[in-house]
Amino acid sequence: MKQLTFRHKTHITLACFLAPAVLIYSLLFLGPVLSSFYYSLTNWNGFTATMGFVGLRNYRDMMDDAAFVAALKNTAVFAVWVVILQNALAIPLAIALDSGIRSKNVLRVIFFAPAVLSPLVVGYTWMYIFNPNSGLLNTFLRSIGLPSWEQVWLGDPKFAMFCIITMVIWQFTGYSMVIYLANLQTIPSELYEAANIDGAGRWNKFLRITFPLLAPAMTINILLSTIGTLKAFDLIYVTTNGGPFHATETLTVLIFESAFKDNNFGYGTAIGVVMFLIIFVVSLLQLLVLRRREVSS
């Protein structure tokens, strides 16, 4: 009997431990998210007290909405290129810094630095670099005698997405590199020594030892940059705002536009739900594939 009351008391105390976090999180995050699933079935405009239940109409409208299809494509292009290029740059950089060079610590600080800046600052800095008249890039091209290579960059639908991808890679390659570096330090040096005895070449050692054993860091990096690009908003919003001619309009920008500019809250939230499903499915698939790679290697 005494034992029971003691256990009840323990549960009550532990419930009190959980209460503040559960309260704040469900009121200000999970609650709004769940109500989003309902709003996505309405035609609510965000202002009026009344809203009509429209069932799945918002979702059906999406299929015929050219802006949505374009945003979906833009988001995919953006995510795929950032994930590939960022990792392709971060791995050699991490290996270079890990090869026993003296300036390792200073270089690490430099490469990581852009990751502490806000996407806003990154956007404004690169807006100047890509500025067609006085910008760094065009001025540079002129000065080395290649004026024909000059472009309006962010103002050109052909190049705008490429410019945004550059900005993101510049900001986060150092971040990925730091994660690869931490992983490199866990690879036992005996493996390389054994490979040396077997007479393995440098390229062979990379392919057979380094690359497979970097799998844990790669899982995290691919997952982080995929989720990061799918959720990216600030940078695009302040540099191109989805333009020119919707060339850089991703799902997040489209949600913001639908909800706060077109006053179509119902439709905006429906796109949000689709975005969540995409993030969920993509990260789950990546986790399954990449984790298997970790185990087998």
């Binding site: 959980l18 559960v22 200000l28 999970l30 709004p32 989003s36 997040t252 949600i255 975005m275 969540f276």
Partner: peptide, 24 residues
């Protein structure tokens, strides 16, 4: 249950909470 309840939040994009949160 409460553990999974919190973990679910890692996957949810803020954009999904944004609009109802604005109202709230």
């Amino acid at each position: 249950f409460f553990y999974l309840f919190f973990i679910a939040g890692i996957m949810l994009p803020f954009q999904l909470a944004m609009i109802p949160l604005y109202k709230l």
